[in-house]
Design a binder for these strands. Structure first.
Lengths: 133, 133
DNA sequence: TGAACGTATGAGCAGTAGTTCAGATGAGCA
DNA sequence: TGCTCATCTGAACTACTGCTCATACGTTCA
């Protein structure tokens, strides 16, 4: 790749060097972009916002997100792979919950900024860490 | 589309109703997903993080993001369309800057959570030199 | 005036992401 | 044991996204 062709043209090399040194590592940036990507779909966002208030089963999540159960299941699979949500099985039901404090905070900030009081403001609704079985 | 087929199957209709009523409007969710989508690309993320520290021209941004100027220009165009960045023209140069407090805070939160102190928020933390005196 | 420069933009391509459909898996019930 | 239910999964299709290439635009300089 001829990235050098692009990089040689710098107006303020000093400033570029400073910004580059302040830039997070490639892996961090990629991970961050990944997380934002998880939040970049309206259906998934609805699922996540719903989960902000506690655990829910797939069919209820599908109702809330107004998507098919299959679509939601695929989303949940992705979210699970990134450890953003966590499952609890009860018989043939699967109850999902938010499992990532970073994502919760991102959601929180985002909801606050659209003038929407986030559920995290009411922690009594959240399901605390399970204490056995 | 048979979305009703999905919605009729609810385990806890009461809870679903509650969560739905607490859910932001469709437009808000779509807008939010949109903003997250803007942050969901590593190259764009690098541009935005660079802009966190002040304005920069396209070619320097391309250097920082390690992308072609054309690619960066396209990103900037998208960011501009969403009013996330703002241009200042000086001769044939174009200096871009972050123009969205919401995005800035999202970036801030995200960087903090990967253990990276955002320079814009805590400039003195960027270089933790021993303050001996 | 014309050439070089920094940036902007459109077309086209390649890779990715979300959806649906069909079918599989495992749990509960008669 | 066989049926139904809730969920999961893979394949295929479609739509979107980001990239490069070519080129246009306005500015600066000789």
């Amino acid at each position: 790749m001829g990235l050098e062709d692009c990089a040689v043209r710098m107006v303020d090399p000093e400033r570029v060097a400073m910004v580059v040194s302040a830039m997070p590592a490639d892996d961090d940036i990629a991970g961050l972009a990944d997380v934002f990507g998880l939040l970049a779909d309206a259906g998934r966002l609805r699922v996540l916002v719903a989960l902000l208030e506690g655990e829910m089963c797939v069919c209820d999540l599908a109702s809330v997100a107004r998507a098919s159960e299959s679509a939601v299941s695929h989303h949940l699979r992705l979210l699970r792979a990134h450890r953003v949500v966590q499952v609890r099985r009860a018989g043939r039901m699967a109850y999902y919950r938010l499992a990532d404090a970073h994502v919760r905070m991102l959601l929180d900030v985002a909801l606050t900024h659209i003038g929407h009081a986030p559920a995290a403001a009411h922690p009594e609704h959240a399901v605390p860490a399970q204490a056995g079985g």
